[in-house]
């Protein structure tokens, strides 16, 4: 294959990765931005979404699209519910103390992961794509489903963006993010907002996971990489900045394919982690953020 088509293929694959990553990281960024909580269990919500997608889609007989659609609906709702519950039962009682919440979400990480191991098992299981269309380009055929993933991710992100900027709920969330005490004084039920935001963040990860499982199997340890990559994206994009998160997701997603051509995956991960650690040390506002007082 000539360089042009190869580059196109790499770009398409990169865009798919970037879409999934953007959705997942958006959830992490939202939770950090509004609640100032670093959710280490975020990757496990992703994994839970994928495992549930497998469970729901295999429960439906008939055309794979039925099972997939059901999964797309049920998995995020269940994951959101679990997140809401853990926020009520754990994070709220810690009064969102940053250090205590990290320790608690580490505990949640182990609990969710090990429950998945206990009930779902250690096997990787595939989920059938809702449709099987190959789009024939002049140089190669490309999975129509993957293009659907990109489109779906864009729609979900647009929806989230509209929710944040155009609705009363979004206004309340932004007010809470800006100043928790004042928001409380104005009668905003801050702790219910927090519960909602935490659930929303987890649901975004779950949607991303449901979208990804037809191209990648569901496994109880699959939350690790999305967690690391989301951290990378959120930190490079600037903690709590949604636009930065999107830009960083695109960069990381697109470069992921290219980097893996030159380096082994392990070395690539080492370099990426080192880069992010150094960004946090020397430019904590992120590569694109503006330093604030």
């Amino acid at each position: 294959m000539a360089f042009g088509p190869y580059f196109l293929l790499a770009t398409l694959e990169g865009l798919v990765t970037a879409s999934i990553l953007a959705l997942t990281a958006l959830g992490l960024s939202l939770v950090f931005g509004v609640m100032r909580v670093v959710n280490v269990a975020h990757g496990e919500f992703f994994m839970l979404g994928a495992v549930l997608a497998w469970a729901v889609s295999t429960a439906f007989a008939g055309h794979p699209a039925i099972g997939f659609s059901a999964a797309l609906l049920v998995a995020p709702l269940v994951v959101g519910g679990a997140a809401f519950l853990s926020e009520r039962l754990v994070l709220r009682r810690l009064d969102y103390n940053p250090e205590a919440t990290i320790v608690a979400t580490i505990g949640m990480l182990y609990i969710i992961q090990q429950l998945a191991l206990t009930f779902y098992g250690a096997d990787a299981r595939p989920v059938q794509a809702p449709f099987n269309v190959r789009i024939q380009l002049p140089w190669f055929g490309y999975s129509g489903y993957k293009l659907f993933v990109i489109a779906a991710a864009i729609i979900v992100m647009l929806g989230t963006w509209l929710l944040l900027t155009r609705t009363k709920i979004g206004l309340i969330m932004r007010a809470t993010q800006y100043d928790r005490e004042t928001a409380q004084a104005f009668g905003i039920p801050v702790d219910r907002v927090y519960g909602g935001v935490f659930a929303l963040g987890a649901m975004l990860a779950a949607v991303a996971a449901v979208l990804v499982v037809p191209t990648q199997q569901a496994h109880y340890l699959m939350g690790r990489d999305p967690l690391l990559l989301s951290f990378i994206v959120v930190i490079i994009g600037g903690l709590g900045s949604l636009r930065g998160t999107l830009v960083a997701a695109l960069i990381v997603g697109l470069s992921d394919g290219i980097i893996s051509v030159f380096f082994s995956p392990t070395l690539a991960k080492m370099l990426a982690t080192a880069l992010v650690a150094l960004v946090l040390v020397f430019r904590p506002q992120g590569l694109f953020g503006v330093r604030t007082r």
């Binding site: 940053p98 951290f231 991960k269 982690t273």
Partner: peptide
């Protein structure tokens, strides 16, 4: 390196350095 940060950033930076060592 890590002591240039505080609080949550210190936690994440130390976690990341350890991850690099592990890798």
């Amino acid at each position: 390196l890590a002591l240039r940060t505080t609080g949550v950033a210190f936690m994440i930076v130390t976690m990341m350095f350890a991850q690099i060592f592990f890798l």
